[in-house]
Design a protein around this nucleic acid. Structure first.
Lengths: 121, 121
DNA sequence: GATGTCGATATAATTATTATACTTAGAAGA
DNA sequence: TCTTCTAAGTATAATAATTATATCGACATC
């Protein structure tokens, strides 16, 4: 079982438990990492445009609060998905961008958007 | 823009806003539909094995509570992703399975598992 | 001076999730 | 008969996550 497994192989094997080389589930921890009301949406915005300032992200995710955006970005940075670049200007400027690890989540959004294209009216 | 868009086309276009034919975002509503601490994990379990009884699901998702499993399954059913089949026996037996709409989420889990294979130690 | 900017932080109020106990109708065992 | 057990929930209260609102800091502009 490796990362070159095709979708057809995945389909055939998903009936049994799929594990990484070290015996872990490759799905559950990722789902947990992306858990939280805003994380996926933040990452998707950064897929569309990157880098993005704090205020731009806030505008795109409109009803989000400062608290949640700050906390989510901190956790995404801690997980290595997002890079934070701070410029020492007044008023402050902070830019967020996806790391390679974060950009590698793009296929997930492709799959989501394919589903959405099919089922969202 | 249609659902036959390849991943390469998606990659090239994700820099601009991607929309369904009716002008909606095909990602955000799906993300919101799958929001909540347990929904993705429940669907993944049902990808692995289906149908599954309430108690089996509960065992697989171990620390989940009755309340959350019940509520999440109700919402997944309301969204047409999960089918609930109740048998009038004592003690009761209720089996949950994925609908076609639910099974079509499988590519999302494939993408997630590919990422997990690459990044989870 | 007074006001505005931007990326936060602080606090309290509201939801979401968890923990615990309980319900149901009958089967099986004592 | 009477108690115990089952499976799929429901009811209630406690805890955690999210939201609403106000504020900070250092400087620029009015």
């Amino acid at each position: 079982m490796n990362q070159l497994m095709t979708y057809e192989e995945f389909q055939n094997r998903v009936g049994s438990v799929i594990l990484t080389e070290s015996g872990n589930c490759p799905v559950t921890p990722v789902v947990q990492m992306l858990q939280g009301k805003w994380k996926l949406q933040i990452i998707y915005e950064l897929c569309i445009q990157s880098p993005m300032r704090f205020g731009e992200l806030k505008k795109m995710l409109k009803p989000i609060t400062n608290t949640m955006l700050t906390n989510a970005l901190k956790e995404l940075e801690a997980d290595g998905l997002v890079h934070r670049e701070q410029y020492n200007e007044i008023p402050p400027r902070v830019e967020y961008s996806l790391t390679e690890k974060g950009r590698d989540l793009l296929p997930i959004f492709y799959a989501i958007s394919q589903w959405g294209m099919k089922y969202i009216p």
